[in-house]
Simulated scan of single mutants.
Amino acid sequence: MRRILSLLACFVIVAAAGENITPQEHNRFHNSNHRPTIRLQKERTMQELVRIDRSQARKIAREKCPDAGIEKIELRHRNRLIYWQVTTPACRLKIDAVSGSIIEKENRK
C-alpha cells in the first residue's frame, strides 16, 4: 500500500511539473493516419506548439548529463504533454518542450 501511494505521488508530481497544451492543440496532431505527408504535418504542428527548440533541449541535456554525448533527441507527446526525449549513454531525459523543465531523468548505467 505504501509503495502504491509513493508511485501515485510521483505521478502527480510529474504531471504537475509539465505544462500542458489544450485539448484542441492536442487533437490538431492526432487526426492523422500513417501516410508520410500526414506524419510531416503532425510534426510541423507539434513544432508550432513548442517554446523550447531542439538546440535548447540539447543544452539542457548537456547541463544535466555533462559527461555524455547525445545519441538521440526526439520531440514526443503523451496525452497533453509535449516533451523532448534526449538519450545519452549515461541517461535518458524527458524535457518539457513548453517550459523547459525536466519531467523525468533515468540513469542508464
Rank of each mutant, 00 (worst) to 15 (best):
E63T: 06
C10R: 14
S6Q: 10
K105Y: 03
P89S: 14
W84D: 11
E106N: 03
I70R: 13
N107G: 03
E48N: 14
F29Q: 09
L8V: 10
K59D: 05
I4P: 00
E25M: 03
K94Y: 08
V50K: 04
I60L: 10
N20I: 02
R108Q: 11
T37C: 09
A68N: 11
D53Y: 05
S6N: 09
S6T: 09
E106K: 10
P36H: 14
V14W: 02
L93A: 04
I4Y: 09
D67N: 12
S99N: 14
K94M: 10
P23G: 08
R51S: 15
E43P: 05
D53T: 02
G69S: 07
L7V: 12
L81G: 01
R54E: 13
K94A: 13
R39V: 13
A57E: 08
E71C: 04
I95V: 15
L5V: 03
I102F: 02
S101W: 03
R58S: 11
R3A: 04
V98E: 00
N20L: 11
K42V: 07
I103C: 03
L40W: 02
I103V: 08
H77L: 00
S32P: 00
M1H: 12
R78D: 10
G69C: 01
C91I: 04
L49P: 06
K105N: 05
L5N: 04
H26N: 02
I103N: 03
I60H: 01
D67P: 01
L81M: 15
I52L: 07
R92G: 02
M1E: 14
T88L: 11
N20C: 08
C65N: 02
L40I: 07
K64V: 12
T45R: 10
A68L: 06
V86M: 11
T87D: 12
R58T: 07
A15Y: 15
R51V: 01
S6Y: 10
V12E: 09
W84M: 12
N20W: 09
P89Q: 12
V14Y: 02
K72F: 14
C91P: 01
F29Y: 15
Q56C: 04
R80P: 00
Q24I: 01
N33P: 01
I60Y: 00
M46F: 09
G18I: 02
H26T: 06
I102G: 03
A61Y: 03
Q47K: 14
N27R: 14
R76N: 15
S101T: 13
S101A: 11
A15G: 11
N20Y: 09
L8M: 14
I21G: 09
P36L: 15
L93N: 05
H26D: 04
R80Y: 05
C65M: 04
E25A: 11
K105I: 06
K72S: 14
L93D: 02
I52Q: 00
R108H: 05
L49G: 06
K64M: 11
R3L: 04
